[in-house]
């Protein structure tokens, strides 16, 4: 099969690779780049575990053809922390006990980041809306909602 050359920014770093036609972004990230933070949940956009940001916008990487991110910027959970320093959202998730098994956590964090990037002071209803495409089986959502609200508050306190 012919391979297509593909270049994009992955968490601030340029990557270049060859992909088979029809390969989705989730597979490209996990198997070709080795970034295991986006998770495979359902493969059909029903669970949100594979959420990533493309040019700052929330996307489901399992439903995104890898070729479509050519020349664009892809952010995953792997790029969220700054060296040894966790992102305020990651700290808030820890402090609020917002993870149990942890499988939904990468997608939740990316959905939350997309929200806080465009709306640093969301209401509770806006947080609920922002994570409504992400399924969590363990936490009952409550600690996740609280964590996003806490991260928003800590972000405002710093700014």
């Amino acid at each position: 099969m012919t391979k297509t050359p593909l270049q994009f920014r992955h968490n601030g770093r340029d990557v270049a690779l060859f992909v088979d036609g029809g390969v989705n972004l989730l597979v490209a990230l996990r198997e070709l780049i080795g970034d295991m933070t986006p998770k495979f949940g359902c493969g059909q956009g029903g669970c949100g575990a594979c959420s990533v940001l493309i040019d700052g916008e929330l996307h489901l990487s399992c439903l995104t053809l890898a070729e479509t991110v050519n020349g664009r910027a892809v952010e995953t959970l792997d790029g969220l922390k700054d060296g040894p320093n966790l992102h305020p959202l990651q700290r808030a998730f820890m402090e609020q006990f917002a993870a149990q098994c942890g499988y939904c956590t990468p997608g939740m964090l990316m959905a939350a980041k997309a929200l806080l990037d465009r709306n640093p002071s969301p209401t509770r209803a806006e947080v609920v809306e922002a994570i409504s495409g992400n399924i969590c089986r363990c936490t009952g959502y409550e600690p996740i909602i609280n964590a996003v609200l806490a991260a928003a508050t800590s972000g405002r306190a710093r700014a």
Binding site: C42, E129, Y141
Partner: peptide
């Protein structure tokens, strides 16, 4: 057959507890 059809409460379906 999948998470689209197998229903579970979303973050908007929970209540104060």
């Amino acid at each position: 057959r999948d998470f689209v059809e197998y229903l579970m409460p979303g973050p908007g379906d929970i209540c104060p507890h």
